[in-house]
Design a binder for these strands. Structure first.
Lengths: 196, 196
DNA sequence: ATGTCTTTTGACACTCACTTCCAATTTATG
DNA sequence: CATAAATTGGAAGTGAGTGTCAAAAGACAT
């Protein structure tokens, strides 16, 4: 599983992503060619397109690993911990990595906000996260209506997305912002219509 | 405001959007060139790019008008109707137009799910909707914490997005599905942490 | 170590999305 | 009718993205 081949591949992928983000941050998305990125990572342009579908794809080229980690965390869920708790704890656990090296995150956010192509990549990453949480919720509570669970999964993504966005725009304590966002996820669901 | 020039422009834009969606549905996104779309709409490729940033941009080229309508509805809001109510009623009022001619909607959804570029366009449309609702909420309740309002706005988008997605995937009564999704928006917000 | 098989890579050629610039055409205005 | 302004078409150029094929490198046997 962890042969030299595998290691070299993840290495190359990382080099390409970091090279891309750094160059984009320096010269702008349109000011950098795939050839530039490839040269910076010491591979050929052909190789770039073997790792990513598009130039924009490199920006969130490592984020899929995080989604895979979330999926693993949910599959390893202990019986006495809810899916929402696992999801909450997982995203909270990601805060450290982001605040430690915020440059990459802020660059990703700027790029996604400025270019529809990159926004598409970001959107897809979050969407696959939503799908994974929805699947886990369905397995956990097969008796609850699907629409309710789908909305719940969607709102967990909203919390993460909103938290990151607000932190990017205004700064502050990311963990604290995230907890504030999460409060809207943990409201009771089985209530009657309420204030409507 | 409604001179011949303006009318011709909106006409051309519509022709391009419908031509694009129809051709994409027939031959797939990659099986259609900008030249094809332009020819179908009787304009030159140069003109196409004066209306849209990219080939993908044409898919949601009319959706921005809906967001503008939402913005207008929120600005015309009577004092005794809440922002959430206006937003809810607006989206519900859009249901008719979608179910009457569902082909365009389904085609848009398929295209966005299959191509990151188009997903980016969709993401941006919904995001501008979120921004508009958030702005209205801040104006309505300046005393409430910003994070709470931002999350609320984000959840309204989740409701619309989830409703459309589920209807696209499983069919059924769109208005009913939307109401089910909206239940998670209208839960009380000022509660103590509750089940957390 | 050596040979063989498989995977990864680099080089080349090609299409088409997208940009830029200029000339021609059409609409608005006095 | 004349002039100004906006819109359009055409042509040329850059670079993203795809396909193919031969070379290089890791995996695995003897």
């Amino acid at each position: 599983m962890t042969g030299l081949r595998e290691r070299k591949k993840t290495e190359t992928r990382q080099h390409l992503v970091y090279a891309a983000i750094r160059l984009f941050a320096e010269r702008g998305f349109d000011g950098v060619t795939v050839e530039d990125i490839s040269a910076e990572a010491n591979v050929s342009p052909s190789t770039f397109f073997r790792y990513f579908d598009s130039k924009a794809g490199a920006v969130f080229g490592l984020a899929r690993q995080r989604i895979a980690d979330l999926s693993a965390a949910l599959e390893a869920r202990p019986a006495n911990v809810s899916v929402l708790e696992v999801t909450h704890d997982f995203w909270l656990s990601q805060v450290d990595g982001i605040v430690t090296d915020p440059d990459v995150f802020h660059a990703q956010q700027e790029l996604a906000d400025g270019h529809a192509q990159i926004a598409g990549e970001r959107s897809r990453v979050f969407d696959s996260g939503r799908e994974i949480v929805a699947k886990a919720l369905r397995a956990e509570s097969p008796e609850r209506p699907v629409i309710e669970l789908e909305m719940l999964a969607s709102v967990t993504v909203s919390a993460v997305f909103t938290g990151l966005r607000l932190w990017h725009e205004a700064g502050g304590d990311l963990a604290e912002i995230f907890e504030d966002c999460w409060r809207l996820v943990d409201r009771p669901t089985a209530d009657p219509k309420g204030t409507a």
